[in-house]
Design a protein around this nucleic acid. Structure first.
Lengths: 144, 144
DNA sequence: TATTGTTATACTCTATAACTATA
DNA sequence: TATAGTTATAGAGTATAACAATA
């Protein structure tokens, strides 16, 4: 079957999704990287900055300003690890959890309106396939 | 059904696809924007620079250097429109077609290896859904 | 000597505005 | 006056390397 490149289709789709996220994030006073950090701490099991950076696909130097602002806003805590005083243990606060939940709900509402244009059977398959592909590339199980 | 944000899944997937494209493009001596231009002229019906920029989601100022290099490499032609001498008519050369075809074949081979990890039934549905979503956002038929 | 987090610097993109030549 | 293409400038985002503290 002849088709366009995947990247050629994914790029504008991602751009549209990001454009839709922007006003929601601004309304809640966080940046995209800030939301990525909150999301990783909300769901995940990362504890150090290095692990966090790896989890969200960012450079360790790139998240520092973001962490500073999230901490100042009381959305995360950052304390030295007593067992390795080089490292900082990150944790999301209750307010951080609530904010992340609010943002995610708003974002997924918009996404659901987009996905509503797909036939219901296709929608589930699309999401399942996307989950699979995401996992494959994140866990480096596939060398493209 | 609880799920991650679409953008959160799409972003690393797109990054992986782009990373896989990079060496192929370098091998053929074109940049990502160069390949985007060739692809639009290869498939499409755009004739002016403004239309091309819009088609590939770029600013008109951003593609000029790219067009210069593609023209110098004999991959495209760029001639003043006799009916409106402000505009330039773009066209892809035979060599441009061949190069674009070679690159696309290589890229889609890599993509197919990734997609091969999906069940065959899911693969078709995924591509169909992606086509649909791509069309929706590109034609601005959906306001997220 | 290696690693965690941090800072500083340089570089690449990108967006914006100003310019020309045509209309 | 408006538009197609071009150029120049400034800003944002990013990568790289160097640093301090700890292991």
């Amino acid at each position: 079957m002849s088709r366009r490149d995947l990247a050629e289709m994914l790029h504008p789709l991602l751009q549209a999704l990001i454009a839709a996220e922007r006003p929601v994030l601004a309304e809640h006073g966080v940046t995209m990287w800030g939301y990525a950090v909150l999301g990783a701490l909300h769901d995940g099991s990362v504890r150090t900055q290095a692990a966090l950076a790896e989890a969200i696909g960012a450079d360790k130097t790139r998240i520092i300003g973001t962490l500073d602002r999230l901490q100042a806003a009381g959305l995360i805590t950052r304390e030295p690890d007593p067992r390795d005083r080089r490292a900082r243990i990150l944790a999301i606060t209750g307010e951080g959890h609530r904010l992340c939940g609010s943002i995610r709900a708003r974002i997924q509402e918009a996404e659901d309106r987009l996905l509503a244009h797909l036939p219901e059977a296709d929608r589930e398959t699309f999401l399942r396939a996307l989950h699979t592909l995401h996992r494959l590339v994140r866990e480096a199980e596939v060398t493209l």
